[in-house]
Design a protein around this nucleic acid. Structure first.
Length: 867
RNA sequence: GCAGGGGUGGCAGAGCUUGGCCAAAUGCGACGGGCUUAGGACCCGUUCCCUUAGCGGGUGCGAGAGUUCAAAUCUCUCCCCCUGCACCA
């Protein structure tokens, strides 16, 4: 409608593991998935074939495509692609060749969830119950046990409290001693099993927890010997099965010591505090204070102690200041970094990775998942400073909608660092540098949009011919079509057309995607474009949007509120469905799909339809004030919608086009407006502007208006701003405010005295009052303003002015003259009397005999009810 | 915890960039009235409190403090919610 050629393609991302996991579930006749698929309306015989992941992928792609077609998306399906087709893989391989040449592919260590039995990485889809293994880095501090050659490893999240360690806790279970290079460690048997996938460990012996209890070990921070005690809460499979005890700052530690004492154990330690909260200094052990704060003591349940722990950790981390030497005044996070560095550099601690899921994570094969530090993982190095810098710069030039999400992109650019790129399993493209791996599924889809520009042209080209030379030429302009044709065996015409198509389309691109993809896909797509393409083909615009909610809730299986696009269309109609998706939100937020909202929209569609059908029965006469008012509204609306469209502020577009339109049209006809020409002009623009959101409705109404073309091929309407008439709107506004005032008074009287007015007299102010106000507004000078008033009115003028003296600065100009007020109101006399339900008389103050006449002020005529 | 975004009336949701015209658009809901055999739809009105011939006053936009003649809007602190946090699409 704005005269541009637009390419709107759509593809299907089938890469990854979930689709394989789903297919496997089908093969295993998993009742849940069979039930789900059935509820999606998939025929039984189709479900049966979905043990094949490819079949499943294609089935859903086909059905999605059909829904989108029905929803009226003007997608060019000839260019549709899937991310696992061989020709697409050729492009991805080419892309990774470039990343490699630029040095952006690096190899290194990486922690992953790992199944020791399968000898493979496990993600969410490989675990029992589909839980994501949550891996966290912790500091494991070495406490050398006196009289031995080994150190007990204690994993902790708060190494900065090490000066407060008074003892260690171990459990009544089996510990193993082991060697790692020159080091000798001691940890629980389960801890050993976990850790040996991260560091090389060689078992040298076993020792029971009881044997350790009673011994002493050395706190590496200060060289002091601290005792080892039994800890009732220590678990063999959490961390290393040994805990450093900081009774001053850890309620569990405090409680454990108290319980030992009570049971007669000789506990010979005093809590040592290492930080205080300014203004809330607590003597002795803060942990005790926090226990008391939640009404807990040493006999309380673990849950209650856990509460105290959370409270203490939170407050201390937030407000605490370190008090120990070398750390004075530091806040906890900073102290933590410093402590970790010092402990590591003095070889007193190592960093380990632990699964922090609340419950143990199991692989589908029932083996407990551990963390493995794989050392040959390939990464894309988004941390490369030069690369980051280029993206940073380019981002500044991009259009981001909504603009407020730019900050999310800015931090995403800074935050992205190494991204593991190779996976052992799943659908996708083989990793060119190591064929055993598949390219991870977000990394293979960063430049796929470029493929749309040529997908239709190479539909019949043998994928093996899609060599580097081809993509170099088409995407980068390297070489010439002749040479490329010879090198690849692709015919000259195709090569040439591909390059032309890419050059034509890939200059002003807009990418729409979901908000939650900003921190991965969307920003990665920026990085990869910058790495691969010449500057002119870098992304120009990104639009992010929220999700669709159903009656305020997220769509989810458990809520049973999933509505398929195809069903929504059937149930509510295409355009209502389209409209509700954009009407209830701006891009950034989730939009709510509620029955009430859809019905409201449908009703208004009906109203517009009715207006279009009624036009033929109406006549055309000379334009009156209300006609100018509607023209004013129309052109303001056209302007507003046009601007909102430019920044994709679809909420404004939809409220303006539907809700406000209906309000305005209703007021127009209530006010006596009945000019067919005016209404036709008005509705014509509205119908055209509705085209992008409600195309079917737009076309239908367009034809009802007597047109034979398509509204979608018409030009987008442009506003005539000279028709936007502030004065007329003010005049109409005056009428509205008189109505509301008169109603209010009438109502008060009817409530109080039960009588209804016989007639209402509206008295417009004497012209000099407007002059008075204008002078006050302009000069803010009482005397000057009063002097300007004719002598006979001065007494009254000074009364008015005196009343305004205190708010002199707030006095506003009277934008309408007394005569204008009178003519507006008297022309609306019939309307007023209809709405107010009695006779209405409009008169000017000087001619009025009413006692209330003198109350008339500019834009606030006096209203006199007679009974 | 870190990063980003939020917290507005019974609900949803504008307004916040550029402080005043904001007791706060619009929609929904609720209540009262009209229309109707009745329901739906539709139309009118009310919907923070007090007060009232349309005035005026109070409270008020997560909590607290500050800047200002003036704050939903600017600054600071805190609380809460949503999203993401990497091999997972």
């Amino acid at each position: 409608m704005k005269g541009y050629n637009v390419l709107y393609p759509m593809g299907f991302h089938l890469t990854g593991i979930p689709i394989i996991a789903q297919a496997n579930k089908i093969k295993e006749n998993d009742p849940d998935i069979l039930e789900d698929f059935k509820s999606f309306g998939i025929p039984q015989e189709e479900i049966a074939k979905m043990g094949d992941p490819l079949y499943m992928g294609n089935y859903f792609a086909k059905s999605a495509r059909e829904s989108m077609r029905r929803a009226g998306y003007s997608i060019d399906w000839t260019r549709s692609l899937t991310s696992i087709e061989p020709s697409f893989s050729k492009m991805v391989e080419w892309q990774f060749g470039i990343l490699n040449r630029k040095g952006y592919l690096v190899q290194g260590k990486h922690p992953v969830g790992w199944c020791p039995k399968d000898q493979g990485a496990v993600g969410m889809h490989d675990t029992k119950g589909d839980v994501e293994p949550e891996i966290e880095k912790e500091t494991a501090i070495k406490f050398k046990v006196e009289g031995t050659d080994y150190s007990i490893l204690c994993a902790t999240f708060r190494p900065e409290t090490i000066e407060g360690v008074t003892n260690l806790f171990v459990g009544d279970f089996t510990y193993v001693t082991c060697r790692s290079g020159d080091e000798a460690y001691c940890m629980s048997a389960e801890g050993f099993e976990m850790l040996r996938h991260q560091i090389s460990l060689e078992k040298t012996g076993e020792i029971s927890g009881r044997e350790l209890q009673g011994r002493k070990c050395i706190n590496p921070a200060n060289g002091k010997a601290v005792p080892i005690y039994p800890g009732y809460f220590v678990k063999q499979d959490v961390g290393t099965g040994a805990v450093m005890s900081v009774p001053a700052h850890a309620p569990f530690d405090y409680v454990a010591l108290e319980r030992l004492r009570k049971s007669g154990y000789n506990v010979d330690v005093v809590p040592v505090s290492v930080l205080q909260i300014p203004g809330k200094e607590i003597a002795g052990a803060p942990a005790l204070a926090y226990l008391r704060a939640v009404n807990a003591d040493e006999n309380s349940s673990d849950e209650l102690i856990e509460q105290a722990t959370k409270l203490e950790y939170k407050e201390e981390s937030h407000m605490g200041k370190m008090t120990i030497k070398g750390y004075e005044g530091m806040n906890e996070p900073a102290a933590r970094d410093k402590a970790i560095n010092e402990l590591k550099s003095s070889n007193a601690a190592i960093e380990i990775y632990l699964l922090i899921n609340e419950k143990p994570v199991y692989c589908r094969c029932k083996t407990r998942v551990v963390v493995k530090l794989v050392d040959n993982q390939w990464f894309i190095n988004y941390g490369d400073e030069k690369w980051k810098g280029q993206v940073r710069e380019h981002l500044k030039e991009m259009r981001i909608f909504p603009e407020k999400s730019r900050s999310a992109f800015e931090s995403a650019v800074e935050w992205l660092n190494l991204r593991a790129v190779a996976r052992a399993q799943g659908l996708g493209t083989r990793f060119p540098l190591d064929n055993r791996f598949i390219i991870e599924s977000l990394s293979d889809s960063t430049i796929y949009m470029a493929f749309y520009t040529i997908r239709n042209l190479i539909a019949n080209v043998d994928p093996s011919k899609l060599k580097t030379e081809f993509f170099d030429y088409v995407y980068l302009g390297i070489g010439d079509p002749n040479g490329v044709s010879k090198a690849t065996g692709i015919d000259y015409e195709t090569v040439k057309k591909c390059r032309e198509s890419f050059s034509y389309w890939y200059k002003d691109t807009s990418r729409h995607s979901a908000l939650e993809l900003v921190f991965n896909h969307l920003t990665m797509h920026l990085f990869n474009h910058v790495a691969v393409f010449p500057r002119e083909n870098w992304p120009k615009q990104v639009v992010v949007n929220g999700m669709i909610l159903i009656e305020g809730e997220k769509m989810s299986k458990s809520l049973g509120n999933i509505i398929l696009l195809s069903d929504a269309i059937k149930r509510y109609g295409v355009d209502s469905e389209r409209f509700v998706a954009v009407a209830s939100t701006d891009l950034f937020n989730d939009s709510d799909f509620s029955e009430a909202a859809v019905n409201g929209i449908k009703e208004r569609f009906e109203y517009l339809n009715g207006v279009c059908e009624s036009l033929d029965a109406m006549g055309t006469s000379e334009l009156s004030q209300i006609d100018f008012w509607l023209y004013s509204k129309l052109n303001a609306k056209t302007d507003t919608v046009g601007r909102a469209m430019d920044i994709l502020d679809l909420r404004t577009v939809s409220t303006e086009l539907l809700y406000n339109t209906v309000i305005e049209l209703r007021r127009y006809s209530a006010r006596g407006g009945s000019n067919a020409m005016v209404m036709r002009d008005y509705i014509t623009n509205v119908v055209l502007m509705l085209q992008p959101i409600a195309p079917h409705l737009s076309e239908e109404l367009w034809h009802k208006l007597g047109n034979t073309s398509f509204s979608s091929t018409e030009s987008w309407p442009s506003p005539d701003l000279s028709m936007v008439n502030a004065k007329v709107e003010l005049q109409e506004g005056l009428i509205d405010s008189v109505i509301s005032d008169a109603k209010q008074v009438a109502q008060l009287m009817s409530k109080k005295q039960g009588k209804k007015p016989k007639s209402i007299t509206i008295i417009t102010p004497s012209p000099w009052k407007a002059d008075l106000m204008n002078s006050l507004a302009e000069h803010r000078d009482l005397g000057k303003a009063i002097e300007a008033v004719a002598k006979e009115n001065r007494a009254e003028a000074s009364k008015i002015a005196a009343g305004l003296a205190r708010k002199l600065n707030e006095v506003k100009r009277a934008e309408l003259s007394g005569d204008e007020e009178f003519s507006s109101l008297s022309s609306a006399q019939e309307y007023l009397s209809g709405i107010l339900g009695c006779d209405v008389i409009v008169e000017k103050e000087p001619e009025s005999k009413s006692q209330r006449a003198s109350r008339a002020m500019p834009l606030k005529p006096s209203i006199d009810l007679s009974y």
